Simulated assay, not measured.
Amino acid sequence: MKVKCYIQGMAAISPQQTFDGDISTAPFVHSESNRLVCVEPDYKPYIPANSLRRMTRVLRMGLATALKCLSVSGVSTPGPIVTGTGKGSLQDTEKFIKEIEQYKETALNPTPFIQSTYNSVNGLIALQQNGTDYNNTFVHRGFSFENALVDSMMLLQEGASHTLTGSFEEMTPEHYYIKSRIGQWREAPVGNTHLFDANLPGTISGEGSAFFVLAAAPTQESKAAVTGIKLLYKPASERLSAVLQELGADADLVISGANGDSNYAHYYQLLNTVLPKPTIPFKHLCGEYDTAGSFALWLAASLLHAGNIPAEWFPMVKELPADFKKVVIYNHFFGEQHTVMVVEKV
């Protein structure tokens, strides 16, 4: 899809100090754990105290990120709200399931069930901002955020003035344990700065929320432009090579979704062969999760807007490019959902 859209404002909560938005001055957050946890802000300026105490982490993160994004964009009414999430509120889901067993399906508290639904964040945003427009949540594993982005771009093409587009994801101890049983995470602890030192199976888990106000036309406040996106399900090497060449042949910088997992390293070896360009990873910053592509988009737009790459965030890269105007993001979710996005300087 080659319809353009422009990022008018954005916000992110991640395992890095990204909520303030200044990538040039934010320090790199080191972790020695295989489970990266978000650096959460003070929610009180964004969410009323009586509502805050009833919300779980992912609801707080999603709502606060969306409201911060609207605030920095100067938009009061969100218009269409389109989000993607792979798991929704795991904490609420787990709590409700535990209560079913504990109370033998009687006298259940409905709140965890209501808040465990995937579109709960969208509903909270609409309620707080009096939004009555199109409202949709995509739950498509590694395509969740990218489908939300494609849907938003089509809405803009059809006449919407702007959209609020984002994602939200959390990792609970229980879910981390479940995924460890099928080998998704490294067996031994590995610091995020040493994620790429050894070629071993497994990676580190992550979580986060990122939102963008997208518009069909550029303004002086535009941070970057999304000029291309393609989604591929279990592509053959030839098909993946063709798409990478098509979208990234003239790119100045590649942002790679490499996560240190030897089971899928061949995809990134192919990437380096097809696009032998300056490349930086991003999963040592946010970890692996269904909608990590939204963090990659936030990172690409932030770097393009700032005009430089903070060396502290990428200690594994020997030489960082000083001038770049077109960025290609390549990411996949455990070898199944592959996405290629093109982000350009406005």
Rank of each mutant, 00 (worst) to 15 (best):
I7C: 01
G9E: 03
M10I: 03
Q16I: 11
F19I: 04
E32L: 15
E32F: 15
S33D: 15
L36F: 06
C38L: 13
V39E: 14
P41E: 04
Y46R: 01
Y46N: 01
Y46E: 00
A49C: 11
N50L: 13
R54K: 15
T56S: 14
L59I: 12
L59F: 11
M61S: 14
G62M: 07
L63T: 02
A64N: 03
T65Y: 08
A66L: 12
L67S: 02
K68T: 04
V72I: 10
S76Y: 09
T77P: 04
P78S: 00
G79A: 03
T83D: 05
G84R: 03
G84V: 02
G86K: 10
K87S: 11
L90P: 02
Q91W: 00
T93A: 15
K98R: 15
Q102I: 12
E105M: 12
L108R: 08
Q115S: 15
Q115P: 10
T117F: 04
Y118N: 12
G123Q: 08
A126I: 02
Q129H: 03
N130P: 04
N136D: 08
N136Q: 12
V139E: 07
G142P: 03
G142N: 06
G142C: 07
S144Q: 09
V150G: 07
L155Q: 11
H162R: 08
S167C: 14
E169T: 12
T172A: 00
Y176R: 12
I178Q: 14
G183Y: 05
W185C: 00
T193M: 13
T193K: 13
L195G: 02
P201R: 02
T203E: 03
S205D: 00
G206P: 01
S209Y: 12
A215N: 10
Q220F: 13
E221F: 11
E221G: 10
V226E: 00
T227C: 14
K230W: 03
K230F: 02
P235F: 00
E238S: 13
R239C: 12
L240A: 02
L240E: 01
A242W: 10
E246G: 11
L247N: 02
G248K: 11
G248I: 10
D250V: 10
L253E: 01
I255S: 05
I255G: 03
S256G: 05
D261I: 00
Y264I: 02
H266Q: 04
Y267P: 08
Y267L: 08
Q269R: 03
Q269N: 09
T273N: 04
L275K: 11
P276T: 06
K277D: 00
I280R: 10
K283Q: 06
H284A: 05
L285F: 06
Y289A: 12
T291H: 09
T291D: 14
A292V: 10
G293K: 04
F295K: 09
F295G: 09
W298C: 08
A300F: 07
A306W: 01
G307N: 01
I309D: 02
A311D: 14
A311V: 14
E312D: 15
E312N: 11
F314Q: 08
V317D: 09
K318T: 14
E319D: 15
E319I: 12
V327C: 08
V328S: 10
V328F: 10
V328L: 14
I329N: 03
I329C: 04
N331S: 07
H332I: 07
F333T: 09
H338F: 00
M341Y: 05
M341V: 07
E344S: 14
V346H: 07
